[in-house]
Nucleic acid binder design. Structure first.
Length: 453
RNA sequence: GUGGGUAUAGCUCAGUUGGUUAGAGCAUCAGAUUGUGGUUCUGAGGGUCGUGGGUUCGAAUCCCAUUAUCCACCCCA
């Protein structure tokens, strides 16, 4: 197509009706965050690469957008790196900033930097865009908003419990049926150790995480390729099979990990969280899933994920506990836990389910027809009164055909049109037309406010 | 990084085994006795058929390349 204008792939413009719908999602999420006592913060879109790199695994580093240095950045480059076309070596020398990849790592940086200005346990929320140089796909964008809630500086499993409550509340308010999946990195570590592949933790978790996609046989094949023995496989297989209750899932995990210390810890943590949840009314099913892994490498404890039940889509909310993320920035011994809501996917799901409230509109209540200069000037005083009373009102800015002005009001879905022509002006009257029903009535201008209040 | 699909008007798409001035719906603009929109009628503007090459008397149509985009994999919200 011969379009002259375009935006970078994986990014999107939002028309007013879309923006209104997105704000509905943000407002809903924000209101739940506030309900649980979390406070807002903001961090810059760009961070130093030293802050970002190495936190998301190799794949994650590859997907960080880098920002070219300013100035004549090639002047100090070694000829060797330049002539060798060594992109990595070159990039390290000509880029020192990047766009943030998520909100959690910048948050860890924020906590370390402002440790003396915040009170621990620090509960914060943050709703901002993040960028990933990923190849776009369904439900995948290069620029997307994350809505993060984290509490840092507390080991208590009450925090995990609260986050599950928050997830449940958000999706209940949005009217999306979900399932909360729960696992623990310690369990995954324990299993890998018990099966004799402690050094293969990551490929191991990646493999079992694919159970839904490639099936049991696929996972088994992949596990064999990373060196799991037949004996180990035989012990693992029950974990890949569906269990009717969380108790039996945990028991099955116990069968595998046995006396492994880390594994036992993970199981005990999950049991505590599940017990805590018993005291609450959580309408979404909470399911222990030993195959849940999550890619981000900084998680160390509980991992949490929410999936929509009615629409096939990747996870729409995910997170977990990270014990030492601030340690990397020089503040060890501070444990954090948090989850992130994927606003774009929630938007896509609500769109597909036709789940947005019907009355989501932001429009003018009443528009004044512009009949000419004296008439429009006369309207200004009335407009002023309406604005001061908190009623959104506008005057059509140019003297145009009445037909055109009505058509404009109609397209904008403005519910009332006010007319003050020469005659009305003289008599102090105003004619109000209800655009939905088509009927109109004339009243005293002094009664105009009452009509809208 | 790997594999597949698609590319025709602002948008959604037709376009026959290659054939003459490339169409529709929606949208836009203008009109149907100048104070009335949403349903009607009439008309207008708008396309180098993604770009470059090739085959052919002739290409939107067939072939090659290229770019963009979508989908799937990897990975992830």
């Amino acid at each position: 197509m011969a379009t002259q204008t375009a935006i970078p792939k994986g990014t999107r413009d939002f028309l007013p009706h879309e923006s209104i719908r997105r704000n509905f999602i943000f407002d809903t999420i924000r209101s739940v965050f506030r309900l649980y006592g979390y406070q807002p913060i903001e961090t810059p879109a760009i961070e130093n690469l030293s802050t970002l790199l190495g936190k998301y695994g190799e794949e994650g580093d590859r997907l960080i957008f880098r920002i070219l240095n300013s100035g004549n950045f090639l002047s100090n480059i070694k000829d060797k790196d330049y002539t060798n076309r060594n992109s990595n070596a070159l990039a390290a020398q000509i880029c020192e900033k990047g766009l943030r990849y998520d909100l959690t790592v910048p948050f860890a940086r924020f906590v370390v930097q402002h440790r003396n200005e915040i009170t621990f346990p620090f509960k914060r929320y943050q709703i901002q865009p993040v960028w990933r140089a990923d190849r776009p796909q369904k439900g995948r964008y290069r620029e997307f908003f994350q809505c993060d809630v984290d509490v840092i500086g507390s080991d208590s499993l009450l925090n995990e419990t609260e986050l599950i409550q928050i997830i449940n509340d958000v999706f209940t308010r949005l009217n999306i049926r979900i399932q909360v999946l729960l696992n623990n990195r310690k369990i995954l570590t324990g299993i890998a150790q018990a099966l004799g592949v402690p050094d293969k933790l990551i490929p191991f978790t990646v493999a079992i995480d694919k159970i839904e996609k490639i099936g049991k046989q696929g996972v088994i094949a992949e596990l064999k390729s990373i060196g799991l023995t037949d004996e180990g496989l035989a012990r693992l297989v029950p974990l890949l099979e569906f269990q009717s209750t969380n108790q039996s899932t945990l028991a099955a995990i116990e069968q595998v990990t046995g006396s492994n210390e880390i594994g036992k810890q993970g199981i005990s943590e999950l049991r505590t969280i599940l017990e805590n949840l018993h005291s609450l009314t959580i309408s979404s099913p909470v399911v222990v899933s030993p195959s849940l892994a999550r890619g981000l490498s900084y998680y160390t404890g509980a991992i949490i994920e929410a999936k929509a039940l009615d629409v096939p889509m990747g996870s729409i909310c995910g997170g977990g506990r990270y014990d030492d993320l601030t340690g990397i920035f020089g503040l060890p011994g501070v444990s954090g836990v948090g989850v992130s809501f994927g606003a774009e996917r929630i938007y896509d799901i609500l769109n597909e389910l036709d789940g947005f409230p019907a009355n989501l509109t932001e429009t003018t209540q009443v528009m004044f027809i512009n009949f000419g200069e004296p008439e429009s000037r006369h309207c200004l005083a009335l407009l002023d009164k309406l604005h001061k009373a908190g009623i959104s009102a506008e005057l059509y800015p140019v003297i145009a055909k009445i037909k055109k002005q009505f058509a404009y009001a109609n397209t904008r879905k403005i519910p009332f049109v006010a007319m003050i022509g020469a005659e009305e002006m003289q008599k102090g009257l105003v004619t109000i037309k209800n655009m939905q029903h088509g009927d109109q009535k004339t009243l005293n201008q002094t009664d105009l406010l009452k009509h809208f209040t």
